[in-house]
Design a protein around this nucleic acid. Structure first.
Lengths: 151, 151
DNA sequence: AATAGATTTGTAATCATTACATAAATGAAA
DNA sequence: TTTCATTTATGTAATGATTACAAATCTATT
């Protein structure tokens, strides 16, 4: 994990054990985890980890632009180690948060701009809510069933 | 405000006094207010209004799609009575939240879609953070000044 | 090893939001 | 218009995520 140390250093973040673990977790888990999800997962390998450290570290990462904080989940903040331009989708049925890249949404890059009018843009968030393909299929199926059952 | 009664009714919302006031406030104030801002403003004309009512009503409005809940302000939820497709900008300097319409961002409509891949999209949120034109000007000016002062 | 500065930790506070029980208002039926 | 059932509004108490803060630990340098 030498490259994570370097990655953090390059962004002016001193690579402590905790910071490396947290960054590594976000780079290897593309699930857009909440603080609690990360805390539980990281506690396995770091039983002494404090939730305050996790909060502080995530704040630092977001400030230094190596992590994105997502606001599409009203309940909890979610975090993403991928800071390249892409969109997010949250299924209101199963709660999962998915990435959406240019291959699925070619128009994506058009709204990531450096300025709009005389505004200077530092961050862009494009997020969708609805039903993921799995939940949509289930829903259709359950409607079909209810029709069948009614006949 | 007969039209607000009708507007609510059309969306399956029984038009109580409180609901009409709250909806009217959101339709006439394009400031994307927080719950507290609305509560203070509405308390003037409705001293008995409860904050719980405000929360319940806003939830109802969001469910019935006559109001948008914005997630771009990490601290507080903000609300918008304009449900037409548009984007939002939050100035991280002065905190103001501005609307961005098609005239300033022609690409806007391209990312408002009904589906992406096999996902069914119910809500789209496009939000920007950065410096508004006022704060950007001030910032430039203060940099200029500091350069001048250093010479 | 000693020191200074940065980082981590745990506890206690904060604050937005929600739960819940009661009160008030509304609308339909008699 | 009285009665009754249902919906809506209110106030207080609980919840739960996040932050503040002070003490402990770690790290790098001399």
């Amino acid at each position: 994990m030498k490259d994570i140390r370097a990655y953090l250093s390059e962004h002016g973040i001193r690579p402590s054990v905790q910071r490396i673990s947290i960054m590594e977790y976000l780079l290897t888990h593309k699930t857009h985890p909440t603080v609690d999800e990360m805390f539980i997962a990281l506690s396995d390998s770091m039983p002494t980890l404090s939730k305050t450290t996790l909060y502080n570290t995530l704040k630092l990462f977001v400030d230094r632009q190596v992590v994105l904080m997502l606001g599409l989940d009203e309940k909890n903040a979610r975090f993403d180690g991928d800071v390249s331009p892409h969109a997010h989708f949250k299924c209101s049925c199963c709660g999962r948060v998915e990435d959406i890249f240019e291959d699925e949404l070619p128009e994506l890059n058009l709204v990531f701009k450096n300025n709009i009018g005389r505004r200077f843009i530092m961050q862009t968030e494009l997020s969708y809510t609805g039903y993921c393909s799995d939940c949509y299929d289930k829903r259709i199926q359950s409607i079909d069933n209810s029709i069948t059952n009614t006949i």
